[in-house]
């Protein structure tokens, strides 16, 4: 202890103590807020409507009503179709974590089989958009990247940004980034219009055009950053920030250095 106190007036003592304090606060916070993961019960493989109804009654009916007829706080699910359920539950948006601004993408609460059962149950209530898949979704074969880009810039970029990185909407809502979203989910979002997003029916954007959009998004996802670090692909804000910090910072640093050398 005495040896340690020897360094208390060292010029690095302050910064080191600050780092230590920050580290301790961070560790304490992460330990205190760490929650125990809930283990989801594994159901037997089943896509039957009855299984789905059971899951619905346990997990969804408190908001959506016992027969999915909707309540004051949640919409009716009659006629929303399997695609809507697959998107909302499959991306973890439903069940909602809280009733605040909008449902956020998170780790799904149900496994694939459970999602399929729920979708089958909701689809059985009334006809609605089905989950796209198989031959319908062969975007590599049936889509055109360039045409998809045009469609994306006309219909999607105003909310999702020119490079599908997401954008802000009013009152804290936002259009999410489309990086890492599966082709099925993109297609489902277009035909069901989750949350703030409008429905893009097959009359507005044909199925072939939808595949082109998906192909362009996938191309944008894998496109390497051609001019160096991408800076998030959000436009001039990050460029200005880097110019002022790194660029001008380096230059002023050099100016200080040049003036010091002369003394």
């Amino acid at each position: 202890m005495k040896r340690l106190s020897h360094y208390r007036r060292h010029r690095f003592a302050g910064p080191v103590l600050l780092l230590f304090a920050l580290f301790m606060v961070g560790t304490t916070f992460s330990v205190a807020t760490a929650s125990t993961r809930q283990s989801s019960s594994v159901l037997s493989r089943s896509t039957s409507i009855a299984e789905g109804q059971q899951i619905f009654l346990k997990g969804c009916s408190s908001c959506h009503g016992l027969n999915a007829e909707g309540t004051k706080i949640a919409p009716s699910l009659i006629g929303v179709g399997a695609a809507s359920v697959d998107f909302q539950v499959g991306t973890g948006r439903m069940p909602m974590a809280d009733m605040s601004v909008q449902a956020m993408r998170k780790k799904p609460a149900y496994n694939a089989d459970q999602v399929a059962a729920l979708a089958a149950y909701v689809a059985s209530l009334a006809p609605g958009p089905a989950i796209p898949g198989g031959e319908i979704l062969n975007y590599e074969r049936d889509g055109s990247t360039a045409q998809g880009g045009e469609l994306f810039r006309t219909n999607c970029a105003m909310c999702h940004n020119f490079a599908a990185q997401g954008g802000a909407l009013s009152q804290g809502k936002s259009a999410p980034s489309l990086m890492g979203v599966t082709p099925t989910q993109i297609y489902e979002a277009m035909i069901t219009g989750p949350q703030s997003m409008p429905v893009f029916s097959d009359k507005i954007i044909t199925p072939a055009e939808k595949l082109s959009i998906i192909k362009w998004i996938k191309a944008a996802e894998t496109e390497p950053s051609l001019g160096g670090a991408s800076l998030g692909r959000v436009g001039p804000v990050t460029e200005g920030l880097l110019g002022w910090t790194l660029g001008l910072g380096l230059l002023i640093g050099v100016a200080v250095w040049l003036a010091t050398k002369a003394r």
Binding site: G149, E150, R153, T154, A157, M158, C159, H160, N161, F162, A163, G166, G167, A168, A175, A220, S225, L226, G227, G228, A229, S230, L231, R233, V234, G235, P236, V237, E239, G240, L241, L242, G243, W244, L246, G247
Partner: peptide
């Protein structure tokens, strides 16, 4: 800076048509 950091990646923005606009359209600082 020019060698390590991309600036104004115009190929991502696409050509201008008055019917289109992107979220987060900003001028330079």
């Amino acid at each position: 800076l020019s060698a390590v950091a991309s600036i104004n990646p115009i190929w991502l923005y696409g050509p201008y048509t008055p019917a289109q606009v992107s979220a987060g359209s900003q001028p330079d600082w």
